[in-house]
Nucleic acid binder design. Sequence first.
DNA 1: TCTGGGGTCCTAGGACCC
DNA 2: TCTGGGGTCCTAGGACCC
Length: 419
Amino acid sequence: MIALVDCRNFYASCERVFRPDLAKTPIVILSSNDGCIIARSDEAKALGVPMGEPYFKAAHIIKEFKIVVFSANFSLYGNMSNRVMAVLGEFSDKLEIYSIDEAFLDCSQEKDLKEYGRLIHYTVRKWTNIPVAVGIAPTKTLAKIGCLLTKRDPDLCGVGLVTANMDLTKILSEVSVSDIWGIGRKLSKSLKLNGINNAQELRMADLRWIQKRYGINVVRTIYELHGTACSELRQLRPIRKSICSSRSFGRKITELREIEEAVAAYVSRAAEKLRSEELKTTTIGVYIRGGRFTNSPFSQSYFVNLFNPTDDTSFLIKIAQTAIRKIFKAGIRYEKCGVSFFNLSLKSQHQLPLFSSINQDLMEGKQLNLGTIIDKLNQRYGRDTLFISACGITPSWKTKAIKMSPHYTTDWRQLPTIG
DNA sequence: TCTGGGGTCCTAGGACCC
DNA sequence: TCTGGGGTCCTAGGACCC
């Protein structure tokens, strides 16, 4: 069983920790440059302030109902998040920090799940002042739905339990496809056009058709709705694959000098992140864009592959500025620019000794099974670094299809059963 | 007038190799 | 009824998440 702990209206709740006088007041949080509404308290939601709305469009509601407005304070939210996660760490050895305001916990050992959920709900509130919802279920997708139920039904007191022996048909019929984790705007629109409106209907959909039409991820979601886990708890944070630093300017920019300065600042921020995680990069990219909300948006990017992996800020700034000069066009009004690093590698290059020891063993003809290698890699780099996917292969003289399996695993011993 | 920032994964297609 | 077979690497685009 998996518990999902989700902080309610996280950014708004964080602000309230330091402004207890605003406990009942509607609050919204704005993105950088006070551009968009990125979080709302329950009261603000009830007044009809939409998520992601540009501030100027919601300004009249905000004024009319005297909604209190905050500019986002991400370092505060990061600190509060750490506190919440530390409390959750007390409840389970197996914890996956999924985002700034959500975590999955393994609670397979717990006997009274309802009570366990209540205890989490109560303790986090007491120790951090942040209200949370708890969803408990056999899979992550169902745990998400458990959380959703608590928002609809106050009688649940913040704990939504979804178990295999409950009437899933009834529960899932009341969940819109667009509320399912992994089904976003595009997919839900398309699914609805095909007559699939709620989670129950999706659960019963034809798997082959779904895989062909929507790909493997939706198939996995369906398995999860049935109670078969397709996404494991990731306790160790995998090594990240890219770092991006970008900002909107808040006004239109036409001067190269200003953009160069911005790029230099973004590179140092991104490089700091790079070093703090003991990584180096082999690719740096820059982009600038404008006209996003006109009918002629444009953007340009330029990537540079580096000869040696590096984390040297001033070197990277030099490259980025050269790159940005290549794509900057005088006279164009730019709104945003950014810097990304790709192909990150470990500073210490641990891969080499690990792989070479495996190669050595193979060369010497030692008996090595796949399981041992996978275990080794996963141990060093965290689970899910390497996984095996059972494949179904459809041979034909004309077509060849290799499909991904919905059920993937890092445990080779499970292969015979799912293969 | 004013419209966030930072990620992941999957799929398809093309170039190229033997 | 018909194309050789088998592979790698890279890129672009599209979807999703918070």
